[in-house]
Design a protein around this nucleic acid. Structure first.
Lengths: 359, 359
DNA sequence: GTGAAAGCGCTAACAG
DNA sequence: CTGTTAGCGCTTTCAC
């Protein structure tokens, strides 16, 4: 299975100085560049950071020496001295959930030319893990934090409150933010989906979703959904939950399960597009009339699924935009004039697709 | 679309000290904990790092004070003093390509209890961007680097060579590694797929893939594939390339295009599973006999697609395992006894699925 | 335009 | 078991 072999290292040669003394290769410092260029450390530092006036000739000599030596500045020392760190901590629950790579993409894009650098941490939907990751990241004294969700442990909330830097909670606006927040109302997303479904004349509605106890946003969507149905006196006819495994496959299995248990359902609302797609494929195979006899809808607006036989009804979660806006706030370019405390609620757009019949 | 409002900040209160002097809130230091606990800075430091012997009573006093104050250690200062940084730089081309989140997952998992922390950077398949990201990351003096691919700019290669830390290039073993490498041979993957296809009796074979000029691995697979066909005198009958857009949709479009241009094709080899899945869906809709009249295969072994109507033939790219192994090497727990220069070639497993007929 | 001195917050090394 | 001293490699500040 795996083949391991030693690389041809000429042993020791790199590790032994001219004088024969063993010495571990020390990383280059400003002093090395200073000596190589005959310019003071201070001026070298100025050149390398483009700060203050330096004569062209000096600048050139320094740059040449730095390049020739292969000098890489030590940001640790720089950060300690200047009390400035160009890092932004970004904490998300998962990377395999298709949602987050999009958000991170928006953040990277926006930060690209801001001089700030995102640093990603993953919590696996575990509050304790979030706390630990946050602690680690804060100990590097970043310039800002972007964190998914409004729910944190006591300790994590306290750290965020006391960090003294911009904090942006993202994805969700249904709750009390610590500082700024950028997201959508998942409650309202569920609510509006419910209204659209009822408006289209469906009545026997089932819900299929994740069992993850800490996916607060999915839960809020379900709450909103039920509230939306209740407006016209409709109640959820059945529910089905899952955890783990391939979402597409789970979508199939759950759909089969719920339909065999409650055969008279005329609509299935899935908590994400992937399981919705699995359900759609299942229904098409079984020859079920979609959306005539059975309507379907998911959530997220995942364009990964664009090539399916039918376009699943969904609601765009504004993932990329959320990333951008959050990054703008941290970078101080949101244009709001506010320092902290920004509330940005984005509005997800309902996409009817081909799986909800026209009212 | 977006609603922005100010948060109710009680202005200034936090920013003004008891004495009425405005002062920006300084982050807590060891000294603060030292004073609050009546223990020397050094001993506080020992307690907080679990180093050296400290009496239980002292430890308790320190821990209590640190917790009460909400002290978060400053790793910048710590790193500068100890010349140790618990960060591992991880550089990948993309997060939207489903492959990389899996790799990152493997890395995170393995590093979890090693005291090391991954820091992710994204290059968008741009060599210059890779160089820039690498420079940024090296300037934080990480304990190791994990980077996707064997192809780098001159400058990037030089930086990696001179960094004096473990470097692990991942995904691909077809080339000259700088230090260690963990991956599969994409050339061989293509070659073996070709053999399997020819063995199954297909003869008029088309290739569909990405146009991305810098996806070296996809290119190597194609080379290997053509070499594999050539062993029995077969040549690729047609090729089709794409870039951008939803892969599933592109897979459909490309399949339609190649089949209308070259209708007598009896096999389509896709450079990744997503476009392969699009092609599969297209063929099923058109009523094409798969795998009887037309065989299909992709690459990656993406389990995201597990719920499709048929299982697409593919080859597992060992993504998760690659991440784990690379992380082990950086953490010094690969068990090989080597210091640097490890070559780990994983063997992807061919999964015939339902889209290659039995030979 | 350039340089010298001081110190960022922590830890290594040693002394007791 | 605990404390003292001396930096880590930069940048700030001030002097020239």
């Amino acid at each position: 299975m795996a083949l391991i072999r030693a690389k041809d290292h000429s042993p020791g040669e790199d590790q032994v100085s001219r004088s024969g003394q063993p010495e571990s290769r020390r990383a280059l410092t400003l002093r090395d560049v200073s000596e190589a260029s005959g310019v003071s450390e201070m001026t070298v530092s100025r050149v390398l950071r483009n700060r203050g006036d330096v004569s062209d000739s000096t600048r050139e000599r320094v740059l040449e020496a730095a390049k020739r030596l292969g000098y890489v500045p030590n940001k640790i020392a720089g950060a300690l001295a200047s009390q400035r760190v160009n890092l932004v901590a970004v904490i998300v629950p998962s990377l395999s959930n298709l949602v987050f790579p999009d958000v991170l993409g928006g953040i990277s894009e926006e930060l690209e030319d801001s001089g700030l650098q995102p640093v990603f941490g993953v919590t696996n939907y575990l509050a304790d893990r979030e706390e630990a990751v946050l602690y680690q990241m804060l100990s590097w004294r970043p310039s800002g934090v972007i964190v998914a969700g409004l729910e944190h442990t006591e300790a994590a909330s306290a750290m965020l409150r006391n960090a003294g830097i911009p904090i942006v909670e993202i994805m969700d606006v249904d709750g009390e933010p610590i500082d700024s927040v950028v997201g959508i109302s998942h409650r309202r997303a569920g609510l509006e989906m419910a209204r659209a479904i009822v408006r289209a004349g469906y009545l026997r509605i089932g819900f299929l979703g994740t069992k993850m106890p800490h996916d607060y946003r999915a839960r809020k969507r379900l709450e909103g959904f039920e509230a939306g149905l209740a407006e016209t006196g409709v109640e959820l006819a059945d529910k089905e939950f899952y955890s783990g495994g391939s979402a597409l496959l789970k979508g199939r299995e759950m759909t089969e399960a719920i339909l065999s248990r409650t055969p008279d359902l005329d609509f299935l609302y899935y908590s994400n597009d992937m399981i919705g797609a699995g359900g759609l494929l299942y229904c098409l195979e079984k020859g079920i009339d979609v959306p005539g006899k059975l309507g379907l809808a998911g959530f997220n607006g995942v364009d990964l699924l664009d090539g399916l036989p039918r376009k699943l009804a969904t609601m765009d979660a504004c993932r990329h935009e959320i990333g951008r806006r959050a990054a703008q706030i941290v970078a101080g370019r949101s244009g709001s004039g506010l320092i902290g405390g920004e509330i940005v609620e984005l509005t997800p757009v309902l996409q009817l697709g081909d799986t909800i019949r026209n009212a």
